[in-house]
């Protein structure tokens, strides 16, 4: 049971990492779509520059979440694949199109039309996908996906299209936009571009307020449409809920003071808090009301092997990530011994 809990915590960590890293990439696409005013082109350039070529690395968290679920909780993967076939297929389409579109947009030289077409694809797909993922998560939380007598029983549309799910889709979307806008204030101020920093400060504040608004609306709908979650939020998850709300207010305050680095730390903590509150609130269920940690987990042998492989994998991954950050983020970067190459990149 302890082993199951640890593995679940690991996978929940992947959800948080994907929200914090991949979510901001989606948010970048949203702001690219909403870029307006005389500085629209500059905004898009900053976004493109910030998303950079590592969306692949950011999307690994999602990949790992899927394989982890398959390996450690195969029954959950089965149930969700059957019950949420439509929204997940659509979200997959979005993930694929935005990833490919971003790669193409970055590498296309010459044809302006082609570049623009892929640019639009990128920003549209970035907007639709987090909405669908949020609605899917709400469908899981709603308790309307049943697994009984060896079969999945769920309506094909209601769980992810009812008001609660739509509101949570909006929360996911606006949260992604908030994350991206906060990160972009840091990027802009790093580049000493104070005008851009102001642009995204305002956007971060607005998006944050929208997120909070939808979040409260979700809480109002929860007692009727997601009773299990609602009960959990008021009990075992209550401290985390309160902390999350305080972190949200703190983020807004830090933005107001133009303390961008602090705001970035707070918004990441808030996102982690939000997702942790959800997880805690539906403990011990993974897919309420039928699938729990204990009745859907793989054999202990598989869980142990999975955890072991994760530890070995981390032993390779963490030093590599550290090296990546040191090279590109270190305070004293290695001097450009190959200055000429800059013309190429």
């Amino acid at each position: 049971m302890i082993l199951t809990g640890i593995v679940m915590a690991l996978l929940w960590g992947c959800i948080i990492a994907y929200a914090v890293l991949g979510g901001a990439d989606f948010g970048g696409g949203v702001w690219s779509l909403l870029a307006s005013g005389p500085t629209a082109a500059r905004q898009q350039r900053l976004i493109e520059h910030a998303i950079g070529p590592v969306w692949e690395a950011n999307s690994v968290w999602l990949i790992y979440l899927v394989v982890g679920l398959l390996t450690a909780f195969p029954l959950v993967a089965y149930t969700l694949a059957v019950a949420l076939f439509v929204p997940f297929t659509l979200a997959l389409l979005g993930i694929v199109l935005r990833g490919a579109a971003f790669a193409f947009e970055t590498h296309i030289t010459g044809s302006v039309n082609l570049r623009q077409a892929w640019g639009h694809t990128f920003s549209t797909a970035s907007t639709i996908t987090p909405f669908l993922l949020g609605a899917g998560a709400a469908a899981v939380a709603s308790g309307q996906i049943h697994y009984r007598n060896g079969a999945v029983q769920a309506d094909r549309f209601t769980p992810w299209l009812m008001p609660f799910a739509l509101v949570m889709g909006a929360v996911a979307l606006s949260l992604c936009a908030t994350l991206a806008a906060v990160y972009l204030t840091v990027e802009a101020s790093h580049q000493k571009d104070h005008e851009m920093a102001e642009v995204f400060r305002l956007r971060a504040l607005i998006a944050g307020a929208v997120t909070a608004g939808f979040g409260l609306l979700g809480l109002l709908l929860a007692p009727g449409e997601a009773p299990i979650i609602w009960h959990g939020l008021g009990h075992q998850a209550l401290p985390v809920v309160i902390i999350t709300m305080l972190l949200g207010l703190g983020t807004a305050f830090a933005l107001y003071l133009r303390r961008y680095l602090l705001a970035r730390g707070l918004v990441i903590a808030m996102t982690a808090g939000l997702l942790s509150a959800w997880g805690l609130a539906q403990m011990p269920y993974i897919v309420p009301p039928d699938l729990t940690l204990s009745n859907s987990a793989s054999s202990p042998a598989m869980l142990g092997a999975f955890l072991g492989s994760a530890i070995v994998g981390m032993a390779f991954l963490l030093p590599s990530l550290w090296f990546l950050f040191r090279v590109f983020k270190g305070n004293q970067p290695t001097p450009a011994v190959r200055g000429r190459d800059l013309e190429e990149s």
Partner: peptide, 30 residues
């Protein structure tokens, strides 16, 4: 998943490493 899911999970790490070092390789010339 319950029997032979492990190689998929391990592949996740291998893919992650390839992504990281590709980033270093592509953007690390200078």
């Amino acid at each position: 998943g319950g029997v032979a899911g492990l190689p998929f999970a391990m592949e996740g790490f291998a893919f992650f490493l390839e992504g990281i070092f590709l980033g270093l390789y592509l953007y690390g010339w200078n």
